[in-house]
């Protein structure tokens, strides 16, 4: 099967049992995407598929034929960190660093969702206008990404700073 990973075309032969996560980690030498539960319960395996955040542990790799997958390894631009990655460092938005790639990919997908007007459970108005990323909005929308070190405050600060134009 063919797919695009971090902008590069990839051709692989996979057992249909292989998850997108294990394809990345075990076959394509991209271990930046993390396995925290393999049950869809922690968010550590979050990647972007055609710009949308998904859990790579619950997706079979074969389902992603022809799709474009972005992992944490593909976020840097011109060899320097994505501004959200830098903001995570600046705000100490992690401790052990294991949930971090998932948090970062999730936040990028999340910001795009809010920008296009997707409401969340805490959005008062369902009018479909871009949703300002208040602290509460960020927390609700990021709740699928667990951080056992408890770096949540720093993560929210990093996201809020990076997507400040969405905060207003």
């Amino acid at each position: 099967m063919d797919l695009v990973i971090n902008g590069k075309p990839v051709s692989v032969d996979v057992d249909p049992r292989v998850s997108l996560l294990d394809l990345l980690r075990e076959r394509l030498d991209l271990p930046g995407t993390k396995k925290g539960c393999n049950q869809g319960a922690c968010g550590a395996c979050t990647v972007l598929v055609d710009g949308e955040r998904i859990l790579s542990c619950l997706g079979l790799a074969v389902q992603y034929e022809g799709r474009s997958v972005t992992t944490v390894e593909g976020l840097a631009e011109d060899g320097s960190l994505h501004r959200l990655q830098q903001a995570f460092i600046d705000h100490d938005g992690f401790q052990c660093g294991y949930c971090t790639p998932g948090q970062i990919c999730s936040a990028i997908g999340m910001a795009a969702e809010a920008r296009r007007g997707l409401p969340s459970f805490v959005t008062a108005d369902l009018d479909g206008d871009p949703v300002p990323l208040s602290g509460e909005e960020v927390r609700e929308r990021m709740s699928g990404n667990l951080c056992r070190c408890g770096a949540y405050n720093g993560i929210v600060a990093a996201i809020t700073e990076t997507f400040a134009e969405d905060v207003r």
């Binding site: 991209l30 271990p31 930046g32 993390k34 944490v72 960190l81 995570f88 460092i89 992690f94």
Partner: peptide, 19 residues
């Protein structure tokens, strides 16, 4: 001081035991 291993961790390049 910001974590000196921060760039590794945020880019998924810090090697963990199963990697």
């Amino acid at each position: 001081v910001s974590r000196i291993d921060g760039p590794l961790k945020v880019s998924g390049a810090a090697p963990f035991a199963a990697e």
